[in-house]
Write a protein that binds this DNA or RNA. Sequence first.
DNA 1: CTTGACTCTGGACCACGGTCCAGACTTTAG
DNA 2: CTAAAGTCTGGACCGTGGTCCAGAGTCAAG
Lengths: 134, 134
Amino acid sequence: MSNLGIGQLAKRAGVAIDTVRYYERNDLLSPAGRLASGYRRYGEAELKRLRFIRRAKALGFTLADIRGLLTLSDERSVARIKQAAEVKLADVDRRIEELERIREGLRTLVKACPGHGRAESCPILNALNAEDAP
Amino acid sequence: MSNLGIGQLAKRAGVAIDTVRYYERNDLLSPAGRLASGYRRYGEAELKRLRFIRRAKALGFTLADIRGLLTLSDERSVARIKQAAEVKLADVDRRIEELERIREGLRTLVKACPGHGRAESCPILNALNAEDAP
DNA sequence: CTTGACTCTGGACCACGGTCCAGACTTTAG
DNA sequence: CTAAAGTCTGGACCGTGGTCCAGAGTCAAG
């Protein structure tokens, strides 16, 4: 079941070859075996695992998170998988809130700025130059 | 008007000394002058500028953005300042949307997962292991 | 004058997630 | 058999925004 070279694997999973080797260096994905020449060989399990990594990244997990998820999924510990997802969800919530605060700040400034006139009357510059906090 | 050493400047602006020097290396902030010893001296203008940088960063501008803003504010070109803020606002919008998509994905999975049982019944693992796209 | 606090420089190092390179070797298609 | 395409290794490098270090020199208070 080791029918794929690193190039085919990478192509099927939609990542770069170097990325596959990078994941190997970082203990996320090992080849199923090696040819006598040293060429890596991969099977379906590795392809699934690589796609797992891609999807988890798309969900906002870092590679360190994913390493954890892969370990947990090996251990078949559903409760901890769910917990990890909840932690990440809270993290994503926090990042969204922060960006929303930033967005409101920008919106206020953009709305208040007439887009012409003297610099002293530009609320964006004035806000950035304000004497008081943030 | 060059009454501050780098330590006082950093403290008043709420940044680290190394950060001030880093900004100098990256053409964001120069000292008003130097003592014969080479010690940097800063005045009120530099303190304002450093606080400007801090606030703009809090609004999600990168240092490269801020370099641009500082140039524009020197040029007193209000229209371009407003435009820069609009561009950044669109960028923040885009980042929020992306995170919201991620959040919905996570929410769906967390809701669907009972938190116990066999790994095969964990929708989180199943989604990450799915055969089809993404 | 001494002591402690401050500052100087240049360069190394951190996380993050890769990307790219040279030089050698191997596999595959024709 | 040959040539092209693929792969190997180890290490350097990218951008972002800093942080830390050593070793030397300087400033301010007592």
